[in-house]
Deep mutational scan, measured.
Amino acid sequence: MPSETPQAEVGPTGCPHRSGPHSAKGSLEKGSPEDKEAKEPLWIRPDAPSRCTWQLGRPASESPHHHTAPAKSPKILPDILKKIGDTPMVRINKIGKKFGLKCELLAKCEFFNAGGSVKDRISLRMIEDAERDGTLKPGDTIIEPTSGNTGIGLALAAAVRGYRCIIVMPEKMSSEKVDVLRALGAEIVRTPTNARFDSPESHVGVAWRLKNEIPNSHILDQYRNASNPLAHYDTTADEILQQCDGKLDMLVASVGTGGTITGIARKLKEKCPGCRIIGVDPEGSILAEPEELNQTEQTTYEVEGIGYDFIPTVLDRTVVDKWFKSNDEEAFTFARMLIAQEGLLCGGSAGSTVAVAVKAAQELQEGQRCVVILPDSVRNYMTKFLSDRWMLQKGFLKEEDLTEKKPWWWHLRVQELGLSAPLTVLPTITCGHTIEILREKGFDQAPVVDEAGVILGMVTLGNMLSSLLAGKVQPSDQVGKVIYKQFKQIRLTDTLGRLSHILEMDHFALVV
């Protein structure tokens, strides 16, 4: 994948999101292997301009796509893939009243899908469409860049269908997702969380590099694949309309690839034109409109599966009536509230959605109805927002919020430890010299600072030695090549209790 991002070429006709291997024109390309080798690009942008032909009021008969309808489940399912879809609609009884809503608040519980998330729908649909058009064949390999849930859905379907599955996901995604993927037989590649989507090191860039190296491999490409919004247009939206008897006044959905909100909203605009569509985008993402909503100094966020630093091709923002931004604290607070007060075992993005819903639905009156999409299960986040310690460490809970008995030293300040200034190293000294210094002084790690004293990161003896043994660096290389740029900081005025929580999850903390 090139470091400079080429513009994806656009073909003359058809839909841009065809499933299957992508040609340089962004659509299915038939021909000899030699032709494909000559024409197939190194990668295709996940934010390529959409060429979708959908228009409100256009006859369904003019759609270029294969459409399906929700099917009634048999008493005995032939395999677990038949437990994807037909998820329950559940009334939220307490939270709406707590925040003064007059309307009825309903939750579409997508964590009841077989793999635990709304992404099971698009995973199965992308595979079925690729099999139907002859792209996927027995023994082929599926590769997908994902925040985890699409990966789980694909790995689940691949396990049943017999495909090899490789999932490329950023490091910030939970260990629970990784464990589930491994249990399903998927191979996992992790990428830096802070890598831009168009960087060769991003999950998108690495996935395309693997595709170019592995024979008979395919990126189904949830960011561009029409099967993504079509899955929701054909099934999720129809289920909502049936469950609500066609009567709903507002739908609120958090947005990642945009397939969920695009597919549902398009069908609702056709069948229930008075329904307002509300999009939820986390602070630090750029999906919301108008652009002024996205202006923030924050560039990272903890909530998973929603928000991006690019506009995915499948996201149709014209069908969203209003956007709201959400933050991590309210997302996790509301997710825990949904679990504790409503018994809905949902993930953090569901918290984002409901946090926005109780604001947006203030305009609705008694007798009206708001539906929220709860995308995934708490299963993926047992060591994250479900953990009091994690919430404390991230600053989303305060010590006084917890009532468990603490040891005698818990409320003492870090400054009472009488710490001395640490050994520091410059980023320009060599790895070999740094190892000598650390061994001589008896230290395992040291902060790396520039000549102005600005902290650049941390270097550890173990990481340097393993990097040297693996051949990633040489003793003569500058130590700046092996620094940890993500590390926890703590102030002298913070409590030892807070430091204790940090050290339970990290090997060190830097006192500043």
Rank of each mutant, 00 (worst) to 15 (best):
D238K: 10
G259Y: 02
S117W: 03
P59L: 15
P70M: 12
G134N: 07
P215R: 06
G20M: 09
R266S: 02
S73I: 12
G274M: 12
P138F: 10
V118L: 06
P64E: 09
S202M: 01
C109R: 08
E270G: 06
I143Y: 05
S50D: 07
G205Y: 08
C109Y: 06
D238L: 04
V180E: 05
R58K: 15
G139V: 04
E131G: 08
M173Y: 08
V10P: 08
S50N: 07
P41T: 12
I219T: 04
I44K: 13
K102G: 02
P6V: 04
I143D: 00
A107G: 15
G153W: 01
F112N: 01
R276N: 15
P78W: 06
I80P: 02
E34T: 10
L230M: 14
G85S: 06
D133C: 07
S123K: 07
D79I: 07
G148Q: 01
H66A: 06
P12D: 04
H66F: 12
C103S: 03
S61D: 05
K119M: 00
I240L: 03
I142Q: 01
D129T: 05
L124M: 09
F111R: 01
I127W: 06
A157H: 02
T150D: 04
P16D: 08
I95W: 00
S254Q: 06
S174N: 02
G274Q: 12
V168H: 01
R190L: 05
A155V: 02
R190F: 01
T87L: 03
G151M: 00
D140G: 07
L124I: 06
P170W: 01
S73Y: 13
N93Q: 05
G256H: 00
I219F: 03
G153D: 01
K25E: 10
C15E: 10
Y233C: 01
L230H: 04
A69Y: 13
T146C: 02
K247T: 13
R161A: 08
S19N: 05
H65E: 04
I95P: 00
A48G: 13
G20S: 07
K82C: 09
H17I: 13
G115E: 08
R224F: 03
C165A: 05
K211I: 10
H65S: 04
D79T: 14
L220R: 02
D79H: 10
R276Q: 07
I240N: 00
P21C: 11
R51S: 14
V255A: 07
G259I: 02
A158H: 01
L106V: 12
A231F: 03
C275Q: 07
V252E: 09
E201M: 03
D234I: 03
E37G: 12
A48I: 10
F111N: 04
R182G: 12
I127K: 07
P2S: 15
P46R: 02
S227P: 09
H232S: 02
P273H: 08
K75C: 12
Q242T: 10
T146L: 05
Q55W: 05
L106W: 12
P6Y: 11
N225A: 04
K94N: 13
G263D: 00
S3I: 04
Q243I: 06
R161M: 07
K98N: 11
A159P: 07
N149G: 07
N216E: 09
E144S: 03
S50P: 09
C15R: 03
Q222L: 03
A253H: 07
L156N: 01
L251D: 02
G259W: 00
G258D: 01
C165Y: 02
L124C: 08
E4S: 14
P215V: 05
W54R: 06
E131R: 03
K30W: 09
N225V: 00
P46W: 01
T53Y: 08
L28R: 06
P21F: 03
R224G: 07
C103H: 04
F111T: 04
S217C: 04
V160N: 05
E201I: 06
R276G: 06
Q222N: 02
K102R: 14
T193H: 09
E270H: 02
V10Q: 09
A265R: 04
S3M: 12
D86E: 13
E239T: 00
T191V: 03
A48H: 09
P74M: 13
N149P: 05
P229C: 01
N113K: 01
L210Q: 06
